[in-house]
Structure formats: C-alpha cells, structure tokens
C-alpha cells in the first residue's frame, strides 16, 4: 500500500501563530503571562486584587471564557484595558484567538499582559500562546494532589500560585503536600501562597511580577 510520509506536528499552526505572538511581545517589550487554573480557583479575583497593586506598570488583560463577558466587565471596572475572548464551548485558548484579541488592544501602552485562560487544567497545557511564562494556580478548596492529576499542566508551568490560604483552617488541603506533589512533577517550579480575598501574600507576588517586566 502506498505511503505518504508526513512527519508534521499536529499543532504546527498553533505553534506558528504562537511564534508570531512571541515576536510581537518581544518587539513591543511586553511581558505576557498565561494564567491557568481550574474553574473557580480565583483567577479573575487574583487579577482584581493584583492589578491595583501594580498601578505603576501599564497592564492589559485578555479574558478567555466559554461564555459571557462577565470577567472582562470586572477588569474593565478597574480602568484596565481588557479584551474578552468567548470561545463558545471551546475548552482552551489557542494562539490564533490571542492574536485576534491583540489586534483589539492598544499595545503601545502595555508592558505587562495577563492572558486569563479558560478554567481548565487539561487542554490549555498543549497550546502555546506566545507567552513568556505559564502561571498555574490552585486553591485550597481543591485537592492537594492536583499536580499529580494534571501533570502536563504543572510540568509546563513556571510558577504556581496557591490561592485562598485564608481558608486553610477550614479545609483539608495541606500546602506542604501540594508543593511536594508539584515539585515531583516539576522541580523548577516556584511558588507563591496568597489570599486574593484578604490580600495575604499579594505583596510578595506583586514584587516578583515587577522583576519580570
């Protein structure tokens, strides 16, 4: 039977567009973070608390959601430039969606871009968006074995934020176990423990972000 050799990456198109995005970020001196977590870990709340703390840096946000522009409205009310991507059922952002969203942001005034991905720890791990770093977040109302269940995500992330630490007295989540589990998957991962609600740990996170811009 005749065979046609292909040897082509399945996500080649995404990777090509991601490279275009990365080049654009480089030219414009924009630091882009891909922010990832399960639904309800508090990504938008984290941004709502963090962005006012780093007012000295010109920020922009791309919000990815399956439906609605509720998250973009929350960011917009802070006076921060934001573009909402509605994936209409799609479970992750891809580089093409981000490229289209970038066309609707005034990049000349942005030094730091947060791309809040769709709440999902599976699919977004495979899609490079052109970001400088992936920041994965888990919260204390989830299992501390999450890194062992969603290994590709924790393997490809650079930074891990543990959110909702104000709830630690009330939940079974053990932050030390969570760190140990995450480090088994990715020994290079660095951690921040925060409560976006009370503000605990947010200064340390803001200080680190300043070093990245």
């Amino acid at each position: 039977m005749p065979v046609i050799t292909v040897e082509r990456k399945v996500l080649e198109k995404n990777d090509q567009i991601a490279a275009v995005n990365r080049k654009l970020f480089g030219e414009r001196k924009i630091t882009a973070f891909n922010l990832l977590s399960s639904p309800g870990s508090g990504k938008t709340t984290l941004l709502e608390k963090l962005l006012p703390q780093i007012k000295d840096i010109m920020c922009g946000v791309i919000e990815g959601d399956v439906q609605s522009d509720r998250d973009a409205q929350r960011i917009n009310s802070l006076g921060i430039p934001v573009v909402q991507i509605v994936t209409n059922g799609g479970c992750h952002l891809d580089a093409g969606l981000v490229k289209d969203a970038l066309a609707n942001l005034d990049l000349t005034s942005i030094r730091l871009l947060f791309i809040e991905n769709v709440g999902n720890l599976v699919c977004p791990a495979n899609y490079d968006l052109g970001e400088k770093m992936k920041i994965v977040m888990m919260s204390t109302t989830e299992g501390d074995d999450k890194p062992l269940k969603y290994t590709p995500m924790f393997r490809t992330a650079n930074v891990c934020i543990i959110n909702k630490i104000d709830l630690l007295p009330h939940v079974e989540f053990n932050p030390d176990t969570a760190r140990e589990n995450a480090l088994k998957i990715n020994p290079e991962l660095s951690f921040f423990s925060v409560s976006a609600k009370t503000g605990e740990g947010m200064n340390e996170l803001a200080d680190w972000i300043r070093t990245q811009v």
Binding site: M1, P2, V3, V6, E7, K9
Partner: peptide, 8 residues
Amino acid sequence: LYIKELEV
C-alpha cells in the same frame, strides 16, 4: 504529537 504517515 505529530502525524507520521498516511496510507493511501
């Protein structure tokens, strides 16, 4: 994650 070949 790639396509190796096609049998046609």
